[in-house]
Structures are given as C-alpha cells and as structure tokens.
C-alpha cells in the first residue's frame, strides 16, 4: 500500500528512542497517523512541528496498518506560530477539533480551511474570526451545522441577530424578541460576511460555537472542552481588536 499526498502536522508522539508517530491532517486521506523513522533527529524534528505543511508518502504492507511516512517540507510555519500565544493556542485548538473527526476520513474542505487559517493565525486581529469559522465548519462536517442564512421562524434573511439553541438556526430580531433571554446572540459578522467583528462580537461567537460543540460533541462523548480552546479565546480577547499583540 502506498499513497502520496500533502498534509499539515497536528502532533507527534514519541515512539522508541529515535522515531515518532506523526498525526497529520492530509488533503485527500483525512486525519492520518504514521510512523516517521528517525523523527527525533535534529534534521527531522523542526520539520515535524504542528502547523507545518509537508509532502507525504505513506507506505504500509496492509491498509489497516499504522504504516510509515516519508516527510518532506513544503511550508515551515511553526517558527512564526511560536511568536504569538494566540497562534500557538490556535494550532493546538484546531488540532483538538480535528481529532473529533474519525481517522482516515477525507475532509478536503476542512484541510483547505486549516491550511489557509494557519497562514493568518499569527495575526490576533483576524485569528478569532477565522477560528470561529473553522469551528462552524467542523460542526458542519460532524453533522451539526448551523443554518445562519435565514430566520427559522419567518424565513427572513435580514436582521438576523439570534440563534435558536434548540435548532441551531438563525432567528430574526422581530421573531426572536419575545424569547430573547432564551436565544443565543448571533454576531453580525457571522450573518453578514462584509461585517468585521468587534471584541463583543467575538465573545458572542465563541459562546455560540462553544455552546453547540459542548452540547452536540463534547458532552455526548464525555470529553472536556480542550484547554487550548479556552487559552486561545482568552488570548484573542485579551488583544485590542485593532492592534497586534
């Protein structure tokens, strides 16, 4: 068995004294694990850092074996990610989100989003918005996508300011006003792609995606919200919206 693909390193686990098991989000083969012989060497260690985009050849005798990767660099982003807390927490939090997906299940759209977001994650001003959109995409891939395009009650596409916690669908200001205390706030930048988020909007957005991730994914699986997500949210909200850290 052999395939050739590209992927983003999500994490590594030591294996013996010289090798590692790499966890990679690949473009066409989903989240995939594989042994990297000599992965703890001085030459390979910088390459196998989370966030780096690499060229991969995977080989195994049988399809269900762990197999071994041959890894070559494509884009080494780890050093830039290390400069900022929000980028470091962000890459860990996105890896934690991708671990919710089954192994070897292709999600090319998520891979493309991951690769694009990692290039911009070191900018705190945009990191929050991109991360929220990534969480929405993961919810969608897991079958719990939110419909934020039209009002669940009236079908209106304008003045969408709430989300129903029950259905995950947007609710317009007019229809939602009597139940406002029971609805989740829908920040303008999620309803209208032209709007840019303020800090309060990001707070609402993290609360929105966090609510559905906990209710639909984390609680049913009996797992806690990753500490990296909380740290990422803290680091993004700590930075003034119009300035870098």
């Amino acid at each position: 068995m052999q395939w050739h693909d590209e992927g983003v390193i999500l994490g590594i686990k030591r294996h013996g004294e010289t090798s590692v098991v790499a966890e990679v989000m690949t473009r066409d083969h989903g989240r995939h694990m594989g042994l990297v012989h000599g992965g703890r060497s001085r030459r390979q260690q910088p390459l196998l850092q989370p966030g780096n985009r690499v060229d991969l050849v995977w080989r195994a005798r049988l399809a269900d074996h762990l197999g071994a990767f041959r890894v070559e660099p494509l884009s080494l982003r780890a050093a830039r990610l290390m400069e900022r807390a929000c980028a470091l927490y962000g890459v860990q939090a996105m890896a934690a989100l991708l671990r919710l997906l089954p192994e070897r299940d292709p999600h090319p759209a998520l891979y493309a989003a991951l690769d694009a977001i990692l290039d911009a994650l070191h900018e705190p001003a945009s990191a929050g918005e991109l991360f929220v959109r990534f969480e929405l995409a993961v919810l969608d891939e897991l079958g719990f996508g939110l419909d934020l395009t039209r009002c669940a009650s009236t079908g209106a596409t304008a003045a969408l300011v709430y989300v129903s916690p029950k259905s995950g669908r947007a609710v317009s200001r007019e229809a939602g006003l009597p139940f406002a205390d029971r609805l989740l706030a829908l920040p303008p930048f999620l309803a209208d792609r032209q709007a840019s988020p303020e800090r309060e909007d990001l707070t609402d957005a993290f609360r929105l995606t966090g609510f559905f991730l906990v209710r639909n994914v984390y609680e049913p699986r009996g797992i806690a919200v990753p500490s990296a997500r909380e740290a990422f949210v803290r680091s993004v909200l700590a930075v003034p919206a119009d300035t870098a850290q």
Binding site: P46, L47, P73, L76, R77, A78, A79, R80
Partner: peptide, 8 residues
C-alpha cells in the same frame, strides 16, 4: 539551518 530557525 531550517527556514524557521533562520527567520527567528
């Protein structure tokens, strides 16, 4: 040196 170390 790798690109990341050089940039740093």
């Amino acid at each position: 040196l790798d690109d990341g170390t050089l940039s740093a």
